[in-house]
Design a protein around this nucleic acid. Sequence first.
DNA 1: GTCAAACTCTGGATTAAGTCTAAAGCCGAA
DNA 2: TTCGGCTTTAGACTTAATCCAGAGTTTGAC
Lengths: 141, 141
Amino acid sequence: MSPNLSQRLKDSGIQPSAQRLAVAQYVLSTDDHPSADQVLAKVQSLVPMLSRATVYNTLNLFVEKGLLKQLVLAEGKVVFDPVLSPHHHFIDDDTGRIEDVPWDAIRVSDPARLEGYDVTEYMVVMRGRKLGGPRKLQKKR
Amino acid sequence: MSPNLSQRLKDSGIQPSAQRLAVAQYVLSTDDHPSADQVLAKVQSLVPMLSRATVYNTLNLFVEKGLLKQLVLAEGKVVFDPVLSPHHHFIDDDTGRIEDVPWDAIRVSDPARLEGYDVTEYMVVMRGRKLGGPRKLQKKR
DNA sequence: GTCAAACTCTGGATTAAGTCTAAAGCCGAA
DNA sequence: TTCGGCTTTAGACTTAATCCAGAGTTTGAC
Ligand SMILES: [Mn+2]
Ligand SMILES: [Mn+2]
Ligand SMILES: [Zn+2]
Ligand SMILES: [Zn+2]
């Protein structure tokens, strides 16, 4: 799966320590959009000797070096996204889950041409319910 | 300007107390997207006898009753938006300021038709720089 | 008008995500 | 082997937001 994760970190100018590799292994290959706490829980279950500070340090470092994007799409939900190419996001109102929507699935009339603005980046953020799956528990309100 | 703000609150099922009217007067008519702290500072300068708890209670109540929308577009920036009709948002990377972009200014190929999703709401979120204005101080990095 | 119940507001305590700090550990080059 | 710099750690700290319990206010029945 990861022919040389260590090399990938080096190429980004990151010293590949054991902790950083453990975090990278999970967060750079997930389909999810995990929060820092989720990363901590997940990686700590494999490498118990891992502190909260290191997880935050590592995630922030990865963002800084361009291996991850940080997203804030809902209240109190800062999450990390290993998909670097442009794409849109769908947020399931029932579960809170954030899903990627391929760039080509939606056509947007060139916002880069907005009068008076220099738009360097954009995405469509959608909210709603995902169809098909079993009815999920509704979030307390 | 506000022929009967009191009535508007009542119509939404909100008891129009003095504090709520003061908050409403500001937050329901601003062109800005203020944070709770900005609302507190602004309204407190007019009505000194106003607690932080009441501002949060009032803003959350207004959101619940549909007078305000809550937006979270950037890390640590929860803001409130009195514009209820659908519109897009532009975030100035230099200043952090959030501006409304009219619905018609951008055409989006009907995301409500996305396969497998029931999209109830969507917006385009843009980031970049605003042209024309004087160069603003860049945020510390 | 009186009074009690319900609603509203307040200051201070509490929570929780995230950052900071200072000491200890690790690692690679000389 | 030793040294200096990088990395990690536990716990202290910061801060937005919520909770709480007492005080104030409004409402409506009588
Ligand atoms: Mn951060
Ligand atoms: Mn809230
Ligand atoms: Zn994504
Ligand atoms: Zn807006």
